[in-house]
Nucleic acid binder design. Structure first.
Lengths: 242, 242
DNA sequence: CGCTTAGTTGATGTCACTCAACCCTAGTGG
DNA sequence: CCACTAGGGTTGAGTGACATCAACTAAGCG
């Protein structure tokens, strides 16, 4: 989903220059709150962040995981007011782009505005897939599918080696993502472990059998629209994973 | 969500002219299928359509209801390939815009491209709210919230009078939307009826107590971002509801 | 008038929730 | 070096919301 993947060097440079105010943010810190009308757009450079909404009964639903390369709140450049909250999950490095600067980029480079819209639409496609999962899959199916998706996204971004990547979420946060209780997340994780599908220790997740996991999850990566990105792992900071 | 609401007369005319090939489509007909690479973008002029995905086990999850004024598949103009299916729910009048024409509009009118992006982002916001509902609300809560949302959207579009509007979905389609079984939808509908909240006969839904329903559903219309549309009920066909 | 589709109802089953206890690890301070 | 604490993680028992199955009714339609 890294928006820079398909851009010309000039456009990527323009995007890089637009990122002012890079800062390190500790885990579990709110970046933008529900109702805010921020003047900057945030982008994740390192670490994990998430979108979520809080319910009146204290419940919480996470609606997106934001990994390095993802824009957090591009929509405020158009909609103005946030209708949900964005917070870090792990300690992260977060970049900020002035909202006005987004408009400038949008008007000067058709390729760039196209790329921004593309990124926004892929996030929407992911959201649709999550809806299908929560609506129609059981706990294990949801979890497997979600992990396959994360694996695909991180691999495409060059952030996973040997089917192994950092996974900084607690079981409780996973529960708020999948729409099930923390206790049931625990039992489901153990199921996947005993099936020899994953290892999950502290901060790291290892896929023991990617093919079987994807098959069990009925995971079809089409919706991630990765085929567009011929240059795998191109990041905002200009590094390529190669 | 009618995209034309905030546009200048010239932009609205341009959009209207872009709609070639208006056709009447019977109920339950597929407009664009999963995997298609269509050359046109569809817009609902009359009737109801929906987005959905089919699962391998025969299950179905509806991910959006598309009402008059909504674009069905704007995303193919950017992403190229459909990752879900769009079909009519009731007999509908559907307009089509050439994909190339979208690009022209996009490049010639900043206001129009802004409006298109806006429409796409509002659909995303609705999707997020549906995710929260399916993830964290019980059956009655989901249904009430969904009905409040539809009421708000149709009222904003000038398609509801006296808290009364056409509602062409079957209980089974409602079930595929809410992620519960048709039988449980039936019981939940009866609950709302006995509570004196709604009347639902054939094709028409009547809200008996909007305030109580919205309050019970914890419905907060912020996420619909309706505040932007000062001209309520402006449609692609140029009519205003007044 | 039979056929079909949608809605309704009851009985039974199950997946996941809640509550509660316990464990394990890391961090802290004595 | 150890006692204490706090936040996950783990486990079991009991409960509840919703699913499934199956039968029946009502409404359109040739």
């Amino acid at each position: 989903m890294s928006v820079a993947a398909d851009l010309s060097e000039a456009d990527r440079a323009a995007l890089r220059l637009a990122v002012t105010r890079v800062r390190d943010v500790p885990a579990h810190e709110i970046l933008i709150d529900d109702g805010d009308r921020p003047e900057v757009v945030h982008v994740v450079l390192e670490g994990f962040a998430c979108r979520y909404k809080l319910l009146s009964d204290g419940g919480k639903q996470i609606m997106a995981w934001l990994v390095p390369g993802d824009f957090c709140d591009l929509q405020v450049a158009v909609l103005g007011r946030m209708d949900h909250t964005i917070a870090t999950v792990s300690a992260s490095r977060i970049g900020a782009i002035d909202r006005a600067q987004i408009d400038v980029l949008f008007n000067t480079s058709p390729a760039l505005s196209h790329a921004l819209w593309w990124a926004s639409l892929v996030q929407e496609a992911i959201l649709r897939e999550w809806l299908v999962g929560i609506g129609r899959r059981d706990a294990a199916g949801r979890m497997m599918h979600l992990l396959c998706e994360l694996h695909a996204r991180l691999t495409a971004a060059g952030l996973a080696q040997d089917d192994r990547f950092t996974f900084p979420l607690s079981q409780s946060e996973l529960a708020d993502t999948l729409g099930i209780s923390p206790v049931h997340v625990n039992r489901t994780v153990q199921l996947l472990r005993h099936e020899g599908l994953i290892e999950w220790t502290r901060n790291e997740l290892v896929f023991k059998d990617v093919a079987r996991l994807c098959s069990l999850a009925c995971f079809d990566p089409n919706y991630l629209h990765l085929e567009r990105r011929r240059r795998r792992g191109a990041h905002l900071d200009g590094r390529d994973a190669s």
